[in-house]
């Protein structure tokens, strides 16, 4: 389904949204040093959807956290649209997250005291050119559950609210850390479909971590991680429609 090939850039030279250069992240766990990232170089392009796969502890989440401004690398640089990000500066990276990044996690992390619509509005109120909460929720197929509190939604619905919340500000970058990890396959497909649709319709650069290799088919490119490095990059000639994915 996908060809194993060196990392070739797509032919029409699209713009780079985010680049990472020589990222190294070392954790001190007691007396043991853990190299979570061991020199990662990466470029993410506009409109593309990439999938990060690899065993636990291979560095996928660490990379995603650094790219999203949730964590700082031990060394190395991150460039957002060619501008280097000062990942140590809380004010700058907060601003970066606020304006440019959307996150989706395995655990939906919705605000329990706000309804679906309000959870999305939380982001649209502080964004520059957001979708309306209703638009964002309709995009993920929840146009009819606007006024439900998280406690009144199923797991899949909660995750789709989380996606709507992440994309409502029309981020430049959507980072998803195992968004289907807590869901059954049927619900997982719905969530992935929502992500795919957002990527397609809004052109949001999307990076998605998964343990499930079959999900790789929906990506433009797939990065395989091992021991803190990208050990393999593959390009899919064509994205497999989500409803055809074999779970």
């Amino acid at each position: 389904m996908h060809s194993k090939a060196p990392a070739n850039l797509p032919s029409k030279t699209p713009k780079v949204t985010l680049s990472a250069r020589d990222l190294i992240k070392v954790y001190q766990a007691g007396t043991v040093e853990i190299r979570a990232l061991d020199g990662v170089d990466l470029d993410l392009y506009e409109d593309e959807l990439v999938v990060l796969v690899g065993p636990s502890g291979s560095g996928k989440s660490t990379l995603l956290n650094i790219l999203g401004g949730l964590d700082a690398p031990t060394s190395g640089q991150v460039f957002f649209r060619g501008q280097q990000l000062d990942l140590e500066n809380d004010a700058i990276i907060t601003e970066y997250r606020r304006k440019h990044v959307g996150f989706v996690f395995q655990f939906y992390n919705l605000i329990a005291s706000l309804t679906a619509q309000e959870n999305v509005a939380l982001v649209t109120e502080i964004a520059e050119a957001p979708l309306t909460p209703t638009e964002a929720l309709s995009l993920v197929g929840l146009g009819d559950r606007l006024n439900a509190f998280p406690a009144e939604l199923s797991g899949g619905e909660q995750q789709r609210v989380a996606i709507a919340r992440a994309i409502a500000k029309q981020p430049d970058l959507l980072l998803c850390d195992e968004p289907t990890g807590a869901l059954d396959s049927k619900t997982g497909i719905l969530v992935l479909a929502a992500l795919e649709q957002v990527n397609r319709e809004l052109g949001t650069t999307t990076a998605l971590i998964t343990h499930n290799r079959s999900i790789s088919g929906m990506a433009d490119r797939v990065f395989r991680f091992g021991d803190g490095r990208i050990v393999e990059t593959s390009i899919n000639a064509a994205r497999v429609p989500v409803d055809e994915l074999v779970w």
Partner: peptide, 11 residues
């Protein structure tokens, strides 16, 4: 919840 809000870009 507060961490989520920080992730969403709240100061």
């Amino acid at each position: 919840e507060l961490a989520t809000l920080r992730v969403l870009g709240f100061t």
